[in-house]
């Protein structure tokens, strides 16, 4: 691809307001949107704020909305964008800090409430013996790079602004990775039903669509978690069988949450 000049329309502003500002940028072969932003910083306006780290789609720092679509700037080729102008705006779901930077600390505060892996008595302190087939699913979830694009696009958080009631797809993936871990001993269903709010998800699969790691968030994480909650709390047949003593309640220890003040996220 020969070098050509494109127009970048980048949001500039802070919580008091802002606007799209146009920059002309000369492209090079295989240029990604993050390269273009860096070129603006180095050559035109060094005060343009954006987050980035690895520039290899491994850290999940440079999330933005490119022509309205949530994506990683380091993973979006300039020549894949339609036309000669590209619009780059910050994630809309989170409070704006400046330009392309938003305050995503809420995600970390929710993560801190999820009880960590707690090995069963038999396996604690010993090397785990697990087959690959038993950890494939968990490994899919652990590919998550915490770019929070799924959180950004989730309509419970984005449009209904229910950060008070739903932890969001990212944390569902995390809970699923623990719930499906062969050596874990905890039960996170009370938390899922309660403060994590898995019931709010109505399976529109927008999160799955934007995941740069192609994690099947809805199908492999959220739906199985919903099924577990339904199983424990809403299945009438199961309730009846427990009532007449034919089956027992699950023997995993119920656990709601981690104390709020153990870890502080200060940003």
């Amino acid at each position: 691809m020969a070098s050509k000049t494109i127009t970048l329309r980048v949001f500039r502003g802070d919580d008091k307001g802002g606007e799209l500002v146009e920059y002309k940028v000369e492209t090079f072969e295989n240029m990604v949107v993050l390269d273009a932003i860096h070129k603006i910083q180095a050559e035109q306006d060094s005060s343009l704020a954006c987050r980035w780290n690895c520039k290899a789609a491994k850290c999940g720092s440079c999330s933005a909305e490119i022509d309205g679509k949530p994506a990683l700037m380091c993973k979006t080729q300039v020549h894949d964008c339609a036309g000669d102008s590209i619009t780059v705006t910050p994630l809309r779901t989170f409070p704006l800090v400046k330009d392309l930077v938003t305050d995503v600390s809420w995600n970390y505060r929710m993560a801190a409430k999820i009880p960590p892996l707690t090995p069963t008595k038999e396996t604690a302190g010993k090397p785990f013996n697990m087959q690959q087939i038993d950890v494939d699913r968990v490994q899919e979830f652990r590919k998550c790079i915490e770019c929070f694009l799924c959180q950004n696009v989730c309509h419970i958080l984005r449009d209904h602004e229910r950060t008070d009631a739903f932890f969001g797809p990212r944390q569902m993936v995390r809970i699923a990775s623990l719930e499906m871990h062969p050596m874990d001993s905890l039960n996170r269903r009370e938390q899922l039903k309660g403060e994590a709010g898995v019931g709010f998800c109505n399976i529109t699969k927008c999160c799955t669509e934007v995941c740069p790691e192609s994690i099947h968030i809805t199908d492999n994480a959220i739906i199985p978690l919903k099924e577990r909650v339904v199983d424990d709390y809403y299945d009438p047949v199961r309730k009846g069988l427990i009532a007449i003593g034919l089956i027992k309640k699950r023997n995993k220890a119920p656990l709601s949450s981690v104390p709020n003040d153990l870890t502080k996220i200060i940003s």
Binding site: A111, L262, T263, S267
Partner: peptide, 19 residues
Amino acid sequence: ELIRTVQDKAVGVGMSVHM
């Protein structure tokens, strides 16, 4: 995998994170 693991563990044991 390594950083996420120690990150989650560190959050679990309690710390103040200044990002």
